[in-house]
């Protein structure tokens, strides 16, 4: 099957998957307890009814669903319940560049650190270097982002004053946010790379190459690496999607106006339209990056053929 054919087939699947996600999310929203108008100071019931009528929430559920679907088809995500005066399209347009920048830089750092550490540790298996590097990686895994982020803020923001500790416009706090994500994901990637590199180094074809006297470096980078990186690539699909789709903790700690903050706040506000909007963005990222990750895995491993 040609790559083009494969991609178009996967595209059709993705559209269907997106439809399922939208449908399930719509009904999940409506079954969640509470509604967008519930607040600490209770609002009289007749006013809640009027607001529901204004937003069309008084109609039968299925009618609401159809209206919603019709609007989605023309790309209209609706008005936000929580940010009055903004449409969901505008909210997402304002916030995705933030998440994309933090996520891509974070991931870049993670790959730059994680993959070489993993390969190097695998090549020096069970040596002091291996244990040292892996302990470092483990440290990154043990420290959750909500611990690393404030520590980075305290050291590089307050003590050394290299970066700002919060904010987006005219602020450098996003660097610390990316660094937090980079450290965390680098640790994962390093462990994963080492593990699968070892799997590859034990494969028969590597032994054959060794027996034939191919240089260790060539074996490592030319032969083992292609197969060894495959699980990392499989892991990267969803990881990249969740990095770009918004990472609540770092956005919250560095006060960055990204998608992650919007999603979590939309859930606590029961902002139905904004929940749906952020879920659609995230779903699209998942479908796209998982496709790219599948393609990359095939490219790395010529034995595998593109299968629908």
């Amino acid at each position: 099957m040609s790559t083009a054919h494969f991609i178009s087939y996967r595209f059709a699947q993705a559209v269907f998957a997106l439809f399922c996600i939208v449908t399930i999310t719509f009904f999940l929203n409506r079954f969640a307890p509470g509604n967008p108008f519930l607040d600490e100071k209770a609002i009289p019931e007749h006013l809640v009814d009027n607001m529901k009528a204004y937003y069309g929430l008084d109609k039968p559920l299925f009618t609401q669903y159809l209206v919603n679907l019709k609007n989605l088809l023309v790309g209209d995500l609706g008005a936000s319940f929580g940010n009055k005066g903004y449409t969901v399209n505008e909210v997402i347009a304002q916030s995705w560049p933030v998440s994309a920048r933090i996520g891509l830089c974070g991931l870049g750092l993670a790959l730059l650190l994680g993959v070489p550490i993993g390969v190097f540790a695998a090549a020096h298996r069970n040596s002091r270097i291996d244990y040292g590097l892996m302990s470092l990686a483990l440290l990154g895994i043990c420290l959750p982002t909500f611990v690393i982020a404030p520590i980075l803020g305290n050291i590089f923001g307050l003590r050394l004053k290299w970066f700002d500790v919060a904010g987006w416009e005219g602020s450098s706090a996003w660097v610390l946010a990316s660094a937090t994500l980079g450290i965390y994901y680098a640790a994962y990637i390093a462990r994963l790379t080492r593990g699968s590199m070892l799997d590859q180094l034990n494969q028969d074809y590597i032994r054959t190459a060794q027996a034939k006297g191919v240089s260790p470096n060539k074996i490592l980078f030319k032969h083992a690496f292609r197969g060894g990186i495959s699980p990392v690539v499989a892991y990267l699909g969803p990881a990249l999607a969740s990095l770009i789709g918004g990472t609540f903790v770092v956005e919250f700690v560095f006060n960055l106006p990204g998608l992650g903050q919007h999603f979590v706040r939309a859930v606590t506000n029961r902002d139905y339209t904004l929940i749906q909007g952020t879920v659609i963005v995230f779903a699209t990222l998942i479908l796209v990056f998982n496709l790219l990750s599948d393609l990359a895995q095939v490219w790395l491993d010529p034995r595998r053929k593109l299968k629908t």
Binding site: G153, V165, A166, G167, N255
Partner: peptide
């Protein structure tokens, strides 16, 4: 007006002169 929901972030922003 800066919307900073995280109390600890807000405090760091204050100490950091923001």
């Amino acid at each position: 007006f800066f919307p900073i929901e995280n109390n600890f972030t807000e405090e760091r922003a204050f100490r950091g002169g923001l």
